[in-house]
Design a protein around this nucleic acid. Structure first.
Lengths: 356, 356
DNA sequence: AAAGCTGATGTGAACGCTAACAATTAACGC
DNA sequence: GCGTTAATTGTTAGCGTTCACATCAGCTTT
């Protein structure tokens, strides 16, 4: 009686069919040299005949590599994180890795610790953490890291490899654009101040104003949501000398546009509005939004690139021979920091001030 | 010399420290009964003392369960899929599962096959496939399924468990809303016709019009993007008798609003516009958009619920005793089909027609 | 022609865990 | 008091790979 009819084939089955040992099958599978072509063909035929697929669990047990990368993300319903995640997933899969994801409910130390614990249980080979708050990056750096970690939009000063978009530069681009159009100064609706992205955009904006000798207005702070933008917009609508606003993301910019519209302030005739992110919708706002475009997929790709580098380094330590391990403190190179440049997309929401 | 200083502890280490056998450690870890409380405490102390963590790979090898669920998604940069994914991830993690994700580049049979192959290699215990096109659902149903599968937004007639939002009902809600406001008929900008969601919304819309004896205008077809909505909006702006439009998603609705605005058609005074999805932005469109809200997280949760049920069933087949396995064709229950109800969110983009 | 090498293959152990069974002890009933 | 049973623990054997090493032919080398 063939009672094993439903058991999926293992290496030994393939070996038997091909008339070789299981080890030879393993050699074929792992592209070892020193297998006679004829034997190789026979093994491959047996593999295909049986529909054999290597058991990755058993393999992981002995190689101690799961071929899985963990990704810790936050609020993946937003366009930016979602795009970054997509870029990461794609690059990782192209490199032959599985991607295990954990979305943080909240950007807290506990949630982060839980996420790392979860992925740790799964024995991921490496980790990408989207850490947009300085506190998160710091917390991360203080946790034990049994595997290589790359952060995205994280804090470069925290001692971990980082990939991020040059937020400061984005702020500069926007502010210069508006000043060049003839505006005396530019107001700013920022994201939450503990977010690194918000901070960078503020910096770029402030520096540019200062460099131009323009007055630096008080910063209005939102929380990235359209609603918070709307509230800030209502406050802005009451300002007499307002001619230009830089809003830290497109969603809030939408809220600002709405508030200005309700207050009968015309954009761009009365006030210029510039956003940040270039979400697919922003081209169709009323009016189409001038904004800053970030290549999120590129960020994801770079993050995986860095992680794979770290993984490779882990396996060939490349320690200079004769150097006793753990000996004199070699000057280890600083962790890599990849910066992706954003660019300005000019649309109709920005123009010269009315009474120039 | 302690040469193993960096080797992470295994069960045997814990056993040695606690003065028991490794099997007893295993029993403690798996909450087996019949372990003396005192022994249990000693083991737990040893585990904590050593910082021991069970090796999930070794465990998976023997239990043949990876505790990982695979998710196949498409275009996760969109709000809907991203939210669904989030719901899935959250529910799966709460249930103690890891989540491995694959985003399809394209909605093709080949891409799907590759994704399933990828996840198959990883030996996932179960699969959630977001299959918004009928063709995808069909292709999926024809592929070998070594593990339980649940589809989301898939085709209920294809023989696989499904969780979806009642799109038809959504179309009905919108159309009834507009007719009740006094519109003679309602135009429709649909999604791509091979998408099940697009189809369901069209159906609900058409049925409602027919039931009310209202004329059924030609359907304009978009591709979910704001740009396609804009193009359709331009065409609509030229229609003389237009008073109401149902747009199949909020992004396209934004495009329609933009086109109407450019054509000096006022919303809702001249034309009412209703969307679908209730993305966070839609409340701040000009004007705020009446739309249909779908509980994507609920969809994700339900999908995992179904999958876990299937997984549990797999292990306790619950076959009536005396019934020979593979014997007479028992009338297997139809695959479960969970439907989540959407609801209408009325905002300012819809109102009574001008010349009522 | 003996020794040495190289290429091709096989054998046994190990990875760290759980399942099945065996063994030991304590408790119980008549 | 002794078999019977239940509770607790240990022993052994895998799970399906890869790694380290052994083997064995067929060549070269001197």
């Amino acid at each position: 009686m063939a009672r094993n009819i439903h058991r999926s084939p293992v290496m030994a089955d393939v070996a038997r069919l091909a008339g070789v040992s299981h080890q030879t099958v393993s050699r074929v599978l792992n592209d070892h040299p020193n297998v006679r072509p004829e034997t190789r063909d026979r093994v491959i035929a047996a593999i295909e005949g049986l529909g054999y697929r290597r058991n990755s669990t058993a393999r992981a047990l002995v190689t101690k590599q799961t071929n899985t990368l963990g990704v810790v993300a936050f609020d993946t319903t937003l366009y930016g994180p979602a795009s970054t995640l997509y870029g990461i997933e794609r690059a990782a899969r192209d490199a032959g890795y599985f991607v295990s994801i954990v979305s943080l409910r909240e950007l807290t130390r506990d949630d982060l610790a839980e996420a790392l614990d979860h992925l740790g249980r799964q024995q991921v080979d490496g980790l990408v953490v989207i850490a947009p708050q300085s506190a998160v990056a710091v917390a991360l750096s203080q946790m034990p890291q049994p595997v290589p970690v790359v952060t995205v939009e994280g804090d470069a000063d925290v001692g971990l490899p980082v990939v991020n978009v040059d937020q400061r530069r984005g702020g500069v681009l926007v502010t210069e654009h508006l000043l060049r159009l003839g505006h005396r100064t530019v107001w700013h609706v920022s994201g939450p101040q503990d977010w690194l992205e918000a901070e960078g955009r503020i910096e770029g904006w402030r520096e540019t104003l200062l460099a131009a000798g323009a007055p630096v207005p008080e910063v209005l702070t939102g929380d990235w949501s359209p609603r918070s933008g709307y509230r800030c917009g209502q406050r802005l609508a009451g300002m007499a000398d307002l001619t230009a606003v830089f809003v830290a993301n497109d969603q809030m910019a939408l809220g600002v546009l709405r508030a200005l519209d309700e207050a009968r302030v015309r954009v761009p005739d009365d006030v210029s509005v510039v956003g940040f992110d270039d979400i697919p919708e922003s081209e169709f706002f009323a009016p189409p939004l001038t904004t800053v475009s970030q290549d999120f997929s590129e960020v994801g790709r770079k993050a995986i690139e860095l992680l794979l580098d770290a993984l490779a380094e882990e396996h060939e330590p490349a320690r200079p021979p004769g150097e006793p391990p753990g000996g004199p403190a070699e000057d280890t190179p600083p962790p890599p920091h990849v910066v992706v440049q954003p660019h300005l997309v000019v649309r109709r929401s920005s123009g010269p001030p009315r009474a120039a």
